[in-house]
């Protein structure tokens, strides 16, 4: 899994690419732990091919951290496969989900 970082409107955007599962989630976890990732964040899921329950767990944990720090976490550009996983697991009720990154960044 690849992680690309960019900034829109002063908000950090992490673009994930590939598969987010039990094998790759440690990499994402390590990435989040190595640098300072405070402040509002947008996660771009457009290029995520597949997400399983442990990948989901990682996003749920991140959402919980951001919530306790009173910072926004928004998910953007979910494709249909990812959307389906969010829906069947009812994880969507924990996230703000946008179909457009600019809109998520408040542009």
């Amino acid at each position: 899994m690849n992680i690309a970082e960019s900034t829109i409107n002063g908000i950090k955007v992490l673009s994930l690419e590939g598969v987010l599962n039990a094998a790759s989630s440690p990499k994402f976890k390590a990435y989040l732990e190595t640098a300072d990732h405070s402040g509002p964040m947008i996660i771009n899921l457009e290029q995520v091919e597949f997400i399983d329950s442990s990948g989901l767990g990682l996003l749920v944990r991140l959402a919980r951290q951001k919530k306790s720090a009173n910072e926004a976490l928004k998910l953007a550009k979910m494709n249909d496969r990812v959307k389906r996983v969010f829906e069947i697991t009812q994880a969507h009720s924990l996230f703000d989900i946008y179909d457009d990154i600019q809109a998520a960044a408040g542009n």
């Binding site: 329950s53 767990g57 990682l58 749920v60 944990r61 996983v85 697991t89 009812q90 994880a91």
Partner: peptide, 18 residues
């Protein structure tokens, strides 16, 4: 089967997934 679920809601997520 997973380490991360902290509450019943998390557990339901995993259950639903599988």
């Amino acid at each position: 089967t997973e380490e991360w679920p902290e509450n019943e809601r998390d557990e339901l997520m995993v259950d639903h997934y599988h």
